[in-house]
Design a protein around this nucleic acid. Structure first.
Length: 207
DNA sequence: AGGATGATATTA
DNA sequence: AATATCATCCTA
């Protein structure tokens, strides 16, 4: 299902620690040239201004500039040379905060997702392992979901969710509990309980 | 448990 | 100019 697009005002209404929870249960949609893919956001992480683990912490550079833009701006960065992470910029212009999308429950374009995920990152050769990746593993992690959704830094970084081929819908599920925990993969600074996910959802990544 | 893989921030 | 550092995933 690909519902309607949340407007700019949605992203402006909430601060980062509110938005990180508000995005759970919403649907992330990419209307790409190859077709539409979408998934329900089931896991998020907040990155705040005063947090050493935040890219924008004490650094406003070429890479982090999108984080200082309008709430709802897309911030994508390359990690470990081969994967990319997708973030929703939050808070006011000039602040430098964002929400990392860590996992999706796939809803449409499953076949297209399978095709994209069966290739080695950045190449057209197939992965050596499974001929087919399970539904559960398609978007179970920030690098995985970016690949499954066909999101690319070169194409989508610094676009805005209010008018890009990528957008987020209002919640499509509502009856769930939100759990918070320490964030995943953080190596610097104090770790904070800024990871949020839908309780008992099997599409949430391992923490 | 280790390796892939490259941009970026930091140090010099 | 050189190096250390990654908000990860895959294969063993």
């Amino acid at each position: 299902m690909t519902g309607n697009r949340l407007p700019l005002s949605f992203y402006q209404t909430y601060n980062t620690l509110e938005l990180v929870k508000k995005l759970l249960g919403c649907e992330l949609v990419h209307n790409s040239p190859d077709g539409i893919t979408s998934g329900i956001i089931v896991e998020t992480e907040a990155y705040l201004l005063d947090d050493p683990a935040c890219h924008a912490y004490n650094r406003r550079t070429t890479r982090t500039e999108p984080m200082f833009g309008e709430a709802g701006t897309i911030y994508i960065y390359l990690i470990y040379g081969m994967y990319q992470c997708f973030n929703v910029v939050s808070n006011e212009v000039g602040t430098g905060e964002a929400v990392l999308i860590r996992a999706l429950q796939p809803t449409s374009g499953i076949e297209l997702m399978e095709q994209r995920r069966s290739l080695v990152p950045g190449k057209s050769e197939r992965l050596s392992k499974n001929p087919k990746i399970s539904l559960k593993e398609l978007c179970r992690g920030p690098g995985k979901l970016v690949r499954a959704m066909g999101i690319e830094r070169a194409l989508h970084n610094n676009l805005h969710l209010a008018d890009a081929p990528i957008f987020i819908t209002p919640p499509v599920v509502s009856d769930f509990e939100i759990v918070s925990s320490l964030r995943v993969g953080i190596n610097v600074g104090v770790d904070l309980p800024y990871r949020y996910y839908i309780k008992d959802n099997i599409f949430v990544s391992k923490g």
